[in-house]
Each structure stands twice: as C-alpha cells, then as structure tokens.
Computed example of a mutant assay.
Amino acid sequence: MIEFRALADDHPDLAHSPLLRGALLTLQYSQNHGSIGLTKTKAFKRVFVHWAVEHFEWPGKSTEEMFRYNKVINEYEFPPLEVLHFLLMSLRLGRHRKGEFRLTKRGAELAQAPGHLFAELIPYFLFQIDHASYARFDDRPFGKWDVWMNVINVEADHGTTEATLFETFYGETQDWDTAGWREMAAFSSCVLRPLEWAGLLIETREDSAGKHVCHVFKSPLWRSALNLDTDEMLQPVSVQ
C-alpha cells in the first residue's frame, strides 16, 4: 500500500509538482474570473489554453516550443491541461454549467489549500487514471503501483536511468533504439511520466554518442510526501 504523508499548505516541496501547480492556477483563474469558457465540445476555450501554456511552466513544454509551429492551440494539443480538466471534473472540484467551467464549493476551498489539494489530486491521478488513455499508444506495462514505487524508491535514490529501471522490472535490456522500444514507451508513459507530472520524479534527457539517455531522480517531494515499505533499505548519501 502506498501511503502519502499529510503536507502543510505552505510546504516548500509542493512547488515541485507540475500537476498541482496547474490545478491551483486553473482553480484560481476560474475563481478570479468567475468561470472559464468552454467550447461546444466542452473543452476549455483557446484563450484559457493559451494562458495555461504561458503560466503552467510545464516540463518540456515551454511557451516558445508550444507556439513555434502553432499560433493557435486547442486543449487536446496540450495534454497536461486535458488530463487536468478531466481530473478536476472527476474529483468534483469544478462543473460545467451553461457553457462554462465553474468551481464547486470544494474546488473554491482547495484553490487556496495546496497541501490539501495535493492529497486529493495526486493519489487519484496516479492510481485511478488509465495513463495509456492519453499516451500515443494503447500498450500498458505489466505491474502494480506498489511494486513500481517501492522498487523505484531504492533504485532511483541516488539517480538511475530509464533503461536501467526497465531492465530491473522486466529483465530485458531495452531502449528507444531497440526492438522493444514499444515496451519501453509503455513503461515510460504509464509509470515514469505520471510520477514526473505528479512532481515525485525528475527526468533529464541528453543525447550522448548518438544515443538518447533519460536520467531519473527522486524529487524532494518524493522524500517528503511518501512513506514506503522500502524506506528502511535506503542508504544515506556518503559525505566526503
């Protein structure tokens, strides 16, 4: 079982969560403006999508990159916002009414309570959402969250790579340039990326000797928010 510790609303490590930041900004925008306009298909209108792109500070989705090839961006073209919209509706923090997204009473309360919002949002996002539903492929990796997170807790404690983690779980040496790249993509999309969006992992990417390498580290939020069975196996960082 994955246990999350309660964090105070002013806990500094909450700043590491892109999803929490996006949720707070969306709730507060709706609160300050009274609502967020919706399209006929009940997506956020472009004026808010553009605002979100500029203010979410999403990893790998800089404003310059997003607008480099598209002057107009719809909600579905900014996947984090599309997922967040679904989460806020599913958790009943917002509702659609007369062509607008409006906060519920609970949504208005959590708009000013980051720690409480994190406790509502992040476990639901990680453990209740089908992460393959918004990925490029429908493939799903074999495994369970309690196993994935307890093993990552140890393996990524001092840093590791995406390929090394995949081999640890599945006993195969695969990467994006091997025949098993689809299995790697499923693992990355359904396990590592949700943990990064939640703010629990930090991923950095580099191209070395013509090969793409993704490094994986636990964020400060992982250490402050999670209480895992494998915590007792962690080794302290040696100080020279």
Rank of each mutant, 00 (worst) to 15 (best):
A163L: 02
A156K: 04
N153R: 11
A198I: 07
T204H: 02
L165H: 02
E172C: 11
V147Q: 09
C190G: 01
R193V: 06
L200C: 05
V154L: 09
E162L: 06
A186N: 03
E155R: 07
L195D: 00
S189I: 08
I129C: 13
A198L: 08
S189A: 13
D130P: 06
V154I: 12
W181I: 12
V147M: 10
I129N: 03
E162C: 06
V151P: 04
Y134M: 14
A135E: 02
T178M: 06
E172G: 06
T164M: 15
A156C: 10
T178D: 03
D139I: 02
W197C: 07
G171H: 09
D139A: 13
V191A: 02
N153M: 05
H131C: 09
F142T: 13
F169E: 08
V191L: 03
N150H: 08
V147R: 13
F137I: 11
L195F: 00
R182L: 15
V147G: 04
L165D: 02
K144F: 05
G143P: 05
T178C: 04
R140N: 12
F169C: 11
Q174L: 14
Q174T: 09
Q128T: 12
S189G: 11
E172A: 14
Y170L: 10
Q128N: 14
A198R: 03
W145S: 08
F127E: 12
Y134N: 12
G171N: 07
Q128G: 11
T164I: 15
D177G: 07
A185P: 01
W181T: 14
Q174N: 12
M184P: 01
K144M: 08
A132G: 15
A163S: 13
G171Y: 02
E196M: 09
D175A: 15
Q128F: 09
I129V: 15
F137N: 10
F166S: 02
R136F: 07
A163F: 01
G143D: 06
T161Y: 00
F127R: 15
L126S: 01
G199K: 03
G199L: 06
T161Q: 03
H131F: 07
N150Q: 08
E155V: 11
D138Y: 13
P194A: 06
Y134P: 05
W197E: 05
T160S: 05
W148T: 03
Q128R: 15
T173W: 10
D130R: 12
Q128M: 13
I202W: 00
V147P: 03
L126K: 01
F137L: 13
Y170Q: 09
L195P: 00
L192Y: 00
H131T: 10
V151H: 04
V154W: 01
I202L: 04
V151A: 10
W176L: 03
G159W: 00
G159I: 11
G159D: 04
E167A: 15
I129D: 02
G199V: 08
F142G: 11
V191D: 01
A198N: 05
V151E: 07
G159E: 04
W181Q: 14
W197N: 06
Y170W: 07
Y134T: 14
Y170E: 05
D157T: 14
F169I: 11
Y134K: 15
W148H: 05
A156D: 02
A132H: 10
F166P: 03
V191H: 01
G171V: 10
L165C: 08
